[in-house]
Amino acid sequence: MENCGVEGREGRSSDVNAVNANANRFPLSFWEVTVACSVVLGFLAGLLGVYLTMPASDYSFLKLPRTLEDLQILRDHLENYTSDYTAQVLVGYCVVYIFMQTFMIPGTVFMSLLAGALFGVFKGVALVVFTATAGASSCYFLSKVIGRPLVFTLWPDKLVFFQEQVARRRQRLLNYMLFLRLTPTLPNTFINVASPIVDVPYHIFFLATVIGLIPAAYVTVKAGIALGELRSVGDLYDFNSVAALFLIGVVSITPTLMSKSKS
């Protein structure tokens, strides 16, 4: 038993040492900074293109919503444009959402509420799942290039834990990634950035993101339809909603647990 304990400590120590060794990539190289700046400029060019195709008007209301009051003001103004300039509003929404996901800017929950308020449940859920998956994928690939220093600096302990779990569940990795997407076990932002670092294949990451985001997107988008009745963001996830998400998450990881039990 003593030997097992020593081996376990040595294993964890080697994981930590491996993470610390990889951290030597900081600071970013010229190539990495160039890639990040190019991505930012690409998003800004897209937003500028949308802005130039909109009719002349006062757009002082356009800003990233930080409160429900900001969101209601934005909704009230955009409703006037959505019917006549649907394509521009959709493209602008997608560019902003993907940009926020790519660069881990908080506030995407307000964007999901806005999708429900402007487009209804079915279109809103489809739009949120598409943009959230595109943004997560963009973050995944950007992290391959410049993400290591960020992860090692912000979440060293979480990274070691995630690395261990992925290694242990390699055979049923899709189930595990689905569980993470469906439950708040690890923040989605961390999953997006850390997945390429711990060698989660992109096809697994993509499938888990597309499928795993649907339940939470439905809850948020549906709440956006009754935006005026919300008093705080905390009202989005009552006990029943959180319990349902956890239940779906447990079901998704059950095959992994059963296979481990048999072995």
Results as ranks from 00 to 15, higher is better:
Cys94Tyr: 08
Cys94Glu: 09
Val95Ala: 02
Val95Asp: 01
Val95Trp: 01
Val96Thr: 15
Ile98Lys: 05
Ile98Phe: 05
Phe99Arg: 03
Phe99Cys: 13
Gln101His: 13
Met104Arg: 05
Met104Thr: 15
Ile105Val: 15
Ile105Pro: 11
Ile105Asn: 05
Ile105Met: 03
Pro106Arg: 10
Gly107Glu: 07
Thr108Tyr: 08
Val109Pro: 03
Met111Val: 01
Met111Gln: 08
Met111Ile: 01
Met111Trp: 10
Ser112Cys: 13
Ser112Lys: 07
Leu113Arg: 05
Leu113Ile: 07
Leu113Cys: 09
Ala115Pro: 14
Ala115Ile: 14
Gly116Asp: 02
Ala117Thr: 02
Leu118Phe: 00
Leu118Pro: 10
Leu118Cys: 06
Phe119Gly: 11
Phe119Glu: 10
Phe119Leu: 12
Phe119Ser: 08
Gly120Tyr: 09
Gly120Lys: 02
Val121Arg: 14
Phe122Trp: 12
Lys123Cys: 12
Gly124Met: 09
Val125Leu: 07
Val125Pro: 06
Ala126Asp: 05
Ala126Glu: 05
Leu127His: 08
Leu127Gly: 06
Val128Cys: 08
Val128Thr: 06
Val129Ala: 11
Thr131Trp: 02
Ala132Lys: 03
Ala132Arg: 03
Ala132Met: 08
Ala132Gly: 14
Thr133Val: 09
Thr133Arg: 12
Ala134Lys: 00
Gly135Pro: 12
Ala136Pro: 14
Ala136Ser: 13
Ala136Gly: 13
Ser137His: 02
Ser137Met: 05
Ser137Pro: 13
Ser137Cys: 08
Ser137Gln: 02
Ser138Phe: 14
Cys139Thr: 05
Tyr140Asp: 01
Tyr140Met: 04
Ser143Gly: 05
Ser143Met: 04
Lys144Glu: 14
Lys144Cys: 15
Val145Ile: 15
Gly147Tyr: 08
Arg148Phe: 11
Arg148Ala: 03
Leu150Met: 09
Val151His: 05
Thr153Tyr: 15
Trp155Gly: 01
Trp155Lys: 02
Val160Tyr: 01
Phe161Ala: 13
Phe161Cys: 14
Glu164His: 12
Glu164Pro: 00
Glu164Lys: 10
Gln165Leu: 15
Gln165His: 08
Val166Trp: 15
Ala167Glu: 07
Arg168Met: 10
Arg168Leu: 15
Arg169Met: 11
Arg172Pro: 00
Arg172Ile: 09
Leu173Gln: 09
Leu173Glu: 04
Leu174Met: 08
Leu174Thr: 10
Asn175Trp: 13
Asn175Ile: 01
Tyr176Thr: 15
Tyr176Pro: 03
Met177Ala: 03
Leu178His: 06
Leu178Ile: 00
Phe179Trp: 11
Phe179Leu: 04
Phe179Gly: 00
Phe179Val: 02
Leu180Asn: 06
Arg181Met: 12
Arg181Trp: 06
Pro184Tyr: 09
Pro184Arg: 10
Thr185Asp: 01
Thr185Gln: 09
Leu186Lys: 00
Leu186Tyr: 11
Leu186Asn: 03
Leu186Arg: 06
Pro187Asp: 09
Pro187Lys: 06
